[in-house]
Structures are given as structure tokens and as C-alpha cells.
Amino acid sequence: MEPVLEIRNLNVDYGLGDRAVQAVRDVSLTLHKGEVLGLAGESGSGKSTLAYGMTRLLAPPGAITGGEVIYHPEQGSPYDVLALSDRALRQFRWAETAIVFQGAMNSLNPVHKISTQLTDVLKAHEPKLSEHSRNARAREMLKLVGISTDRMDAFPHQLSGGMRQRVMIGMALILQPQVVIMDEPTTALDVVMQRQILGQLIDLRERLGFSVIFITHDLSLLVEFSNRIAIMYGGRIVEEAPAATLYRDALHPYSKGLLGSFPALRGPRRELSGIPGSPPDLAGMPTGCSFHPRCPKAFEPCSTAIPVLGRPDIPDGAGRSVACWLHPAEQPVG
């Protein structure tokens, strides 16, 4: 499969100097054309930071301290998003990679109509388009996500939460990007609505052929909807595998823990983490494998040496990677 976005050794810090916390550490991850890549991990594991980092949307004090994000455009040669000039970055944004902050109720500007917010993207990226065709495109996108076009002149507060999310999906697709990132924050909408909207996005992906990075706490959603899953812990990717493989036979004890604690359809989200102990403190990360204080299988090298992410030493280890001393890497990733 052809890659569309390759994250290589990405590091993101919050703050500067000694006080800095490393929220994303040495992450390498590849998104292939047309696939849905799921990213899961407990709250605070750095999922959003990774998403903001690779799109350069980090607000201070967040800063990228190293790495590359190689984008493969449909035509032309690959380039590093992190090295783009401000101008080139503006052109890259939304046209190549769009973000949907799923569940975020405030993604739409409350003082402008839906139509204005759909068309200003077109105005910025395709200035030659006439107003008439801009409006036509905006209406087309609303239809695509199942919203009646007479809502064009509605203001965000006049739409329900689910409709607003669908508007955001429509907006994300208006420039036909190759990559759509969906980030679901801790305070998500209800699970049924989420499933429905996600299902819709996956349908659209099959028709329009973009790739999706889907970020969530909810591994059950990922198992159902994604092709591959990457698990994050303490700012690092600790395991990555095809969805079915990970579901059947997760190698990393943390992934197993996550899988063993599928959340109830309703109820507090905390139950998700059936793993004893609490997520690591980024400021004082444990030495060695950062999961070792909580790991039921921790043994002698775990507290001193960091396991690298790589192809595990098992018979059918191709196409997956893990960072755990139980399965020392044969070929490190990145």
C-alpha cells in the first residue's frame, strides 16, 4: 500500500527548557492511502498532541522539537509538512489534511452562518471560484452529510450537536483532502451518536477515497471501524497492528489491558481503564518502559532500558510492531 502521511520520529514538548514535558516522544507512524488508522490510549497519552503536532496546530506552549511529517500529494513529490513556509502551510491545510474535532460543540464560529463558514474555505483556497459555485459546493457538501440545504443560512446554535458534527464533516471534505483526522476529546457526545456519525464518515471514505486517522479512547469503535490500530502510552506508540490482529492477539500488556476493559455503552468513561494504577506523569516519566510500574508482566530489563518499537519476534509478526521486552524488536521502526 502507498503511504500518504508518514510521521517520523516526531517529538512534541509543552514548555521550554527544564520545565518542558515531553507529550509526544519519538513517534513514527504511517498512514496509507484509503485506510482508517485508529489511535487509542488513555486520557493524557498524547493523542491530540500528536494530531495537533503533525498538522502544526499546536498552541503555545506546545512546540515540535524534532521529527518529520512527510506528506505524499496526489501529484508531485513528497514533502515535509514541518518544513513548509507559512504560506505553503496555509495552502496545505484543509486542502490536503482536514481535521474534525469530533464531539467538540464549539468547532463552528457562533456568529457566522453555516454557509459563510463552508464557503470561506473555498474563498481562501480556490479564489477563482464564483460565489455561485461556492454556494453550490457548500450545498452539495451538506447534502453529502445528510443535512437539508435549507440549513445553509442557519447559525450554529440553531443546529443540534449531531448536525453540527455532520456540518464539520461536510466542511472537512469540501476541498477533497487526502487525509481526514478525527479527534474525539474526553467529553464526547453520546456513544450511539458517535457510532452513527463515524459510520457515515467511513461510508463517505469508501466513495471519496480519503484516508482517516481516528483518535479515541474507545477501542471497541476502532476494532469495528478501522483497518489498523496504534496504541499510545505516555507519549509513545507502544503497539501497532491490523485491527483484527490486535483484537485477537494483542502483544503489549497495555493493549491487552485496554482490550480487556471495553467500556459499557453508557456509564462513566473511567471504567475504560481496567488497568490498575494511573497514567504516567509526563514530568516524571518512569525509567525504562514507562508502563513498568503498572505492568503485570514486568521483568528485569523493563525498569532500566526503553524497549524500541519494532517487528515482534513471533512467527506471523509481519505488518505489526510492538515496544515491549517480552517481544524484542527484530527490526526497529523509524
Binding site: 498538522t55 496546530l57 498552541a59 502551510l89 496555509r90 495552502q91 496545505f92 491545510r93 484543509w94 486542502a95 482536514a98 481535521i99 474535532f101 467538540a104 464549539n106 468547532s107 463552528l108 464560529n109 457562533p110 470561506d120 474555505v121 481562501a124 483556497h125 464539520m168 466542511m171
Partner: peptide, 18 residues
């Protein structure tokens, strides 16, 4: 500036002025 819709506006690649 810390509202989500501002981040979205940046993500949309709108001109800084807008």
C-alpha cells in the same frame, strides 16, 4: 483565541487576517 472554532479556522488555512 483558545476556542475550538479558532483552531478550526487555522486548520482551514484561512488567511491570518480573517
Amino acid at each position: 483565541s483558545s476556542e475550538d472554532y479558532i483552531t478550526v479556522a487555522h486548520a482551514k488555512g484561512l488567511p491570518e487576517r480573517r
